[in-house]
């Protein structure tokens, strides 16, 4: 897929910024608009943009991990955040929060870990769909 030079150059700088922004959206989601779903989608669109401008193969190299692994680890993170409570003797998915307040993020708790799982999973599925579709188009061309 051929793209304009401007788009190519711009995305190279945009990608890290969008990724950072997506992570910011994820972390602040508990108190302000945002969260795992939105963060994951934003991150996915960053990679999608890269795939359009540079081609899927480069985008995949940049991602380094297979999107399927992202989906799996996302599910595992989300699930284990709930299991934490089970090992502590209360109900599955009962929330736990740290007493200590971290700078920028604030308190860390299991719901936040759950949200991180959602983030990776949503990122994974969006990229898996887009990559496998785009890969196919490239092969045909």
């Amino acid at each position: 897929m051929r793209s304009s030079l401007i788009l190519c150059t711009a995305t190279r700088f945009l990608l890290p910024i969008i990724l950072m922004f997506s992570f910011f959206i994820l972390l602040r989601g508990h108190n302000e608009p945002g969260g795992g779903f939105i963060g994951g989608l934003v991150a996915a669109s960053a990679f999608a943009l890269y795939a359009i401008s540079h081609g899927v193969t480069y985008a995949q190299q940049l991602l380094k991990v297979n999107p399927i692994n992202l989906i799996a680890s996302g599910l595992i993170i989300a699930l284990s955040s709930g299991l934490f409570a089970v090992f502590n003797g209360s109900n599955f998915m009962q929330g736990y929060w740290s007493e200590f307040k971290f700078p920028v993020i604030g308190k860390i708790g299991t719901p936040l870990i759950f949200d991180i799982g959602v983030y990776f999973l949503v990122l994974g599925i969006a990229l898996l769909i887009i990559f496998s579709l785009a890969e196919e188009e490239e092969e045909i061309q």
Binding site: F37, V122, I125, A126
Partner: peptide, 17 residues
Amino acid sequence: ILTAIVIGFGIQAFALV
């Protein structure tokens, strides 16, 4: 609605493919 939107996307993609 939030989950419905995201799931809707999944369904769209699946139906498309």
